[in-house]
Amino acid sequence: MIELTVALVVFLFPLAYSPGPGNMFFAAYGARYGVRATLPATTGYHVATWLVTVAIGFGFAVAIRHAPGLFLAIKWVGAAYVFSLAWTFLRAGLIAGVQEARPAGFLDGVILLALNPKAYLIIALMFTQFLSEAQGNRTMLVLWIATVFTLNNLAAFLVWTAVGERIAARLRRESSSRAINLIFATVLAAVAVWMMLR
């Protein structure tokens, strides 16, 4: 189990820590609200991550493979959701008197993961590499792989959120709050475009 875990973490490191849509989402929210305010969304995302990873490990990937239209629908709905989050930042940055954008909550984190079909592909790829050759109790292996994957991903997101918070702390001034909101809206819109094009 130790050898499997080490190999899994090495395999996941570049996937988890490279700038992908989830990392950019949490970096933007960390920059805007700080690490503490993003913890509900981070928790929601990773509870959903663990559940989806377990489901795929036990065969959810088969349903996606036999229903390619489902994958496409999830992709477009997910992109639309992230665009809507970008729009809240944009409105807060451009229109005087509009309610300030709020921190993402637990449900936002769940939705972000659920509507990110690329996460499903990464998880399915991980299981093809680490479950097919594994020996022993398959149920325990699926649960262990899902747990290691989720904790590794959580660590990466916390790093990106903290980096976003540190960068924003250097730039934050009252007069620049609208510009910062525009930057965050642009980052989230870019995440949505990435989700559509991948």
Rank of each mutant, 00 (worst) to 15 (best):
residue 145 I to A: 11
residue 163 V to Y: 02
residue 178 R to H: 13
residue 83 F to M: 09
residue 60 F to L: 15
residue 49 T to R: 09
residue 103 P to Q: 07
residue 78 G to A: 07
residue 181 N to G: 06
residue 172 R to D: 11
residue 177 S to W: 03
residue 185 A to C: 12
residue 44 G to D: 03
residue 83 F to S: 01
residue 181 N to H: 10
residue 97 G to Q: 09
residue 66 H to R: 12
residue 176 S to A: 13
residue 116 N to K: 05
residue 113 L to I: 08
residue 48 A to W: 06
residue 188 L to A: 12
residue 73 A to R: 01
residue 114 A to K: 04
residue 95 I to N: 02
residue 46 H to T: 09
residue 164 G to K: 08
residue 66 H to K: 11
residue 85 L to C: 03
residue 160 W to D: 11
residue 161 T to H: 04
residue 67 A to E: 10
residue 143 L to D: 07
residue 59 G to W: 05
residue 162 A to M: 12
residue 62 V to F: 06
residue 107 L to F: 12
residue 174 E to C: 01
residue 50 W to T: 14
residue 134 A to N: 05
residue 56 I to D: 08
residue 71 F to V: 05
residue 144 W to M: 14
residue 90 L to N: 00
residue 74 I to N: 03
residue 148 V to M: 03
residue 182 L to M: 14
residue 183 I to G: 12
residue 76 W to F: 15
residue 73 A to N: 00
residue 88 T to A: 12
residue 98 V to F: 13
residue 177 S to P: 00
residue 61 A to D: 13
residue 56 I to W: 04
residue 91 R to F: 02
residue 79 A to P: 08
residue 114 A to R: 02
residue 111 I to W: 02
residue 131 L to Q: 14
residue 55 A to M: 11
residue 175 S to V: 08
residue 94 L to D: 04
residue 48 A to C: 12
residue 112 L to K: 01
residue 86 A to I: 01
residue 43 T to F: 15
residue 105 G to R: 14
residue 93 G to Y: 04
residue 191 V to P: 01
residue 161 T to C: 13
residue 148 V to H: 03
residue 96 A to T: 13
residue 129 Q to P: 00
residue 130 F to M: 06
residue 121 L to E: 01
residue 159 V to K: 07
residue 176 S to M: 10
residue 120 Y to R: 06
residue 79 A to V: 06
residue 45 Y to H: 15
residue 68 P to R: 10
residue 124 A to G: 12
residue 133 E to Y: 11
residue 76 W to T: 06
residue 43 T to I: 14
residue 185 A to Q: 08
residue 180 I to E: 10
residue 97 G to N: 07
residue 181 N to R: 00
residue 121 L to P: 01
residue 72 L to R: 11
residue 178 R to I: 01
residue 58 F to I: 05
residue 174 E to A: 14
residue 122 I to E: 11
residue 173 R to V: 02
residue 171 L to G: 09
residue 112 L to F: 14
residue 136 G to R: 03
residue 177 S to L: 12
residue 161 T to S: 15
residue 189 A to M: 10
residue 69 G to V: 05
residue 153 N to W: 14
residue 189 A to R: 06
residue 63 A to G: 00
residue 153 N to S: 15
residue 119 A to E: 06
residue 119 A to W: 11
residue 85 L to E: 02
residue 185 A to L: 11
residue 152 N to Y: 10
residue 146 A to T: 10
residue 70 L to C: 01
residue 120 Y to D: 03
residue 76 W to S: 10
residue 74 I to H: 02
residue 87 W to N: 01
residue 157 F to P: 00
residue 145 I to V: 15
residue 189 A to G: 12
residue 97 G to H: 08
residue 107 L to T: 11
residue 75 K to T: 04
residue 84 S to D: 01
residue 115 L to M: 10
residue 137 N to S: 13
residue 190 A to H: 03
residue 61 A to Q: 11
residue 95 I to K: 15
residue 159 V to R: 08
residue 162 A to L: 13
residue 179 A to Y: 10
residue 158 L to D: 00
residue 59 G to P: 06
residue 59 G to T: 05
residue 58 F to W: 06
residue 154 L to N: 05
residue 139 T to M: 11
residue 103 P to D: 07
residue 129 Q to E: 08
residue 165 E to W: 09
residue 169 A to H: 07
residue 132 S to A: 13
